[in-house]
Amino acid sequence: MTTTIKATTRSAANGDSRGDSAVQPPAPSGMPRHLLSAGDLNAETATLVLDTAERLEQAMSGREVRKLPTLRGRTVVNLFYEDSTRTRISFELAAKRLSADVINFSAKGSSVSKGESLKDTALTLQAMGADAVVCRHSASGAPQRLSAWVSGRVVNAGDGTHEHPTQALLDAFTLRRHLGELAGRKIVVVGDVLHSRVARSNVLLLSTLGAQVELVAPPTLLPVGVGSWPASVSYDLDASLSGADAVMMLRVQRERMSGAFFPTAREYTRSYGLDVRRRAMLPDHGVVMHPGPMNRGMEITPAVADGDGSVIVEQVANGVTVRMAVLYLLLSGEMETNA
């Protein structure tokens, strides 16, 4: 089952063999040309990204000049069709710390049927010579579409309800810091899996790194077809927490209530919220994560979010480092492959 899902999740733009989309040569050393899905990374390349992030942090630590010249003269475009200040700032800081020129292209509201089309925007960025495009979009697959229209590298910064691969990388980086190697570790992911790009990317990446992922949610918030994912599924958070090395709480949007996914916020919190009682079920080394922004009191109580074992703030800091690693690796050797 795992191999099946692997085969279908590697982005078509990174070497799907059907020939439906423009297939471009992959970057060398197994790194994909674009980072569109966590499924684009195998254990080797995922580890390369995490190791590179470690080294980058080492190289930057304790120095006067928190900047590296590595991407001097390169242009990174942050193409954001959705508001996400935290993700945009994280990518912006990552690119700037590598001395890239950063252009923020906020196209909010022009995504669907009004304003410039995604393709025209892509051609514009292409004409401006963007070396990398970091794309956030409300439509699943939009970064993959974009990758067919630009020659630069495309990084998916969150697309619809599909994926958010750099979030998964920073989560894995954070987990590795606290737990060491992830092989055999049990990671529990709790909440709105159905609509969560964070969950999809984490399931792919963490399973690639050998971790055992368990998804916990009310059945209404799990996709039909979740059975084909390399993860186990549970409806019982209390039962899942025993023996878990980490618990990752997903943001639950209050508007889901109008879709009748669950009756009330109170009932959701009672069944799937992480409070002090449940936090105590984790072993001593257990880690509490949340990709942010949090609904305090909904999926997580403030005491847990700010308490022992919570690495939520650390996740944010690690985001910059991991995104530096991704940009460095995707933009290295670019002339060789484009030659």
Binding site: I5, S140, G160, H162, R200, V224, G225, S228
Partner: peptide, 13 residues
């Protein structure tokens, strides 16, 4: 179609 592929691609089924 709502199934394994839509679940993976994150598209409404």
């Amino acid at each position: 179609h709502e199934g394994d592929v839509s679940a993976t691609l994150g598209m409404t089924g």
